[in-house]
Design a protein around this nucleic acid. Structure first.
Lengths: 128, 128
DNA sequence: TACACATTCAACCACATGGTTGAATTATAC
DNA sequence: GTATAATTCAACCATGTGGTTGAATGTGTA
């Protein structure tokens, strides 16, 4: 169970770590695409593109419907939601880090204001 | 610029695609850790763990402060925020997919309700 | 100074990845 | 039924990845 989940998130993040595959995902947000259509914008052989699509499929990000000789691919955003959720665990850390940065900037402002207090002030009152 | 961004998100997703590295990140949410401390829970050599930490560093996920002979690592959640943001683009797709699922379930409920209408009903009124 | 400690470096290995090419498979079209 | 189109398969190649071991580096300590 946990094994399965671990395996899945491994494959999802790995699938996302390649620009070609990310581009294909973007393309699939615009609708269903055949293998050929997905391959077309990329300067590589069809076989190579086919492998990329298989990686996306393996990560559960793409579903394929075979209609005769063409393979229709569509986006399955589920694993993206999983990855998004996984990252959300860390949301607290980057927001508090931004808070800390903001705090430092305020300190800096206060320091500047303090320096200005020793000089003839030009504009008052924004040191809250 | 875009190159840089692309390279970065590549390395971030790649860094996240390994369970050992994800575990190290989790550990770092609990506070600063030395290389040895990060390596300890994992059944591998220090050199191997050191390489993992370098991958995290390369993705900008970990910062290192060298204090004498020990290297203190801390989490830098910034790139996680970037990845989270990247995934958010697709949020619409998984939520509308859930909406569609919900819609299907409602249809199913309606179908069942319709079937039940042909039978003596037992419990009324939850088909909104 | 000599030793122990924390970490990296370098060389190596097995296997995965991302690409190629040419042949095979399968379905449509003439 | 034969050619053509869409896709995969198989073999191959260069490079990357994740691991090992043993030596090297640099820092604290007796």
């Amino acid at each position: 169970m946990v094994e399965l989940y671990t395996h899945k998130i491994d494959t999802v993040f790995h699938a996302l770590s390649d620009a070609t595959r990310r581009h294909m995902l973007r393309e699939l947000t615009r609708g269903e695409r055949t293998v050929g259509q997905l391959a077309e914008p990329h300067a590589m052989s069809l076989a190579a593109a086919s492998k990329h699509i298989k990686v996306l499929e393996g990560a559960g990000l793409v579903r394929r419907e075979i209609q005769g000789r063409i393979h229709l691919c569509r986006l399955d955003p589920g694993p993206l939601a999983t990855a998004h959720e996984w990252l959300s665990f860390y949301e607290h850390f980057w927001t508090t880090r931004l808070d800390a940065l903001e705090h430092l900037l305020k300190q800096d402002d206060a320091r500047k204001a303090d320096q200005n207090a020793k000089m003839p002030p030009s504009k008052p009152g924004n040191d809250t």
